[in-house]
Design a protein around this nucleic acid. Structure first.
Lengths: 138, 138
DNA sequence: AATTACCTTTAAATAGTTATAAATTAAGTA
DNA sequence: TACTTAATTTATAACTATTTAAAGGTAATT
């Protein structure tokens, strides 16, 4: 995982400006284990930044993804989720309630998968779909 | 892979009607190795069914997915692709040109992945992202 | 041929995301 | 500190893929 300062430094070193909005978004993401959507970040940021816009959120998050600090997940076809943990791992998605959980994967497993293609894979996603325990009961 | 008749029978056995549109869509998908979008199916069906609608395409494809005849891929965040090969395998997506290719995976590999989660996985997707050979040159 | 429930079409709505242009601001410089 | 400039943010509108609702059409059974 990364620290706020680490991200800010990299932004600066690449010539990006350290704006209040960027800092706020980075702080909101730092250390999180869940997978917020743009909507979620937007509403969480209302208190500190009532005027923040979706455009800023989307562009910042994209920047962070390009710099390798987060992953953009398309596991949920309704909306995009952001994962502040950049290291490759798998995800489980409950098709009933939308629960989205991390799943560990060994380095060996990751390497094996990345080598499956004849092209060089920059990144990878492993998505498992099903029902969580709660939803399976019903 | 499945045959047209196989799909029609299953539809019938589940009480669904065998309409001309459904048959046409199933025929268009049968045996395909690519991953058409709704748009693509729509335009390909214009000749034989000039009045077909997106609503029909989306609902039929969803039906086929529920019955296990195709997979709905969210590898491309711009649009959904349909994969008429229902057996689990991986996919590669070129982030520059959009090339979308199948990748084989051993049964063993599939089982290992599906067992990673504490929940029972009904289905799984493995997406590799990068540049195809063409795009990598530039 | 008549019936009926299901299906397709049309049209409009929805929702997530992106583009544009004007206003703001970070950061370097005098 | 004030000034300058280019990057960034905001507000708004646009866009696009997908879904929904209502009305008419049709497959399958009688």
């Amino acid at each position: 995982m990364w620290s706020i300062d680490e991200v800010l430094e990299k932004l600066k070193s690449r010539g990006y400006k350290l704006t209040g909005q960027r800092k706020a978004i980075i702080e909101k993401l730092c250390g999180r284990k869940d997978h917020p959507t743009a909507e979620q970040l937007y509403s969480e940021l209302q208190k500190s930044h009532p005027a923040i816009s979706f455009a800023t959120i989307y562009s910042t998050v994209q920047l962070l993804a390009e710099m390798g600090f987060l992953q953009i997940l398309t596991i949920d076809d309704k909306k995009t989720h952001f994962d502040p943990t950049p290291e490759t791992h798998a995800h489980f998605f409950c098709q009933r309630c939308g629960l989205l959980e991390d799943i560990d994967m060994s380095q060996e497993e990751r390497d094996t998968l990345k080598r499956l293609s004849k092209y060089r894979a920059r990144s990878m996603q492993v998505y498992l779909y099903g029902l969580c325990h709660e939803c399976d009961k019903k």
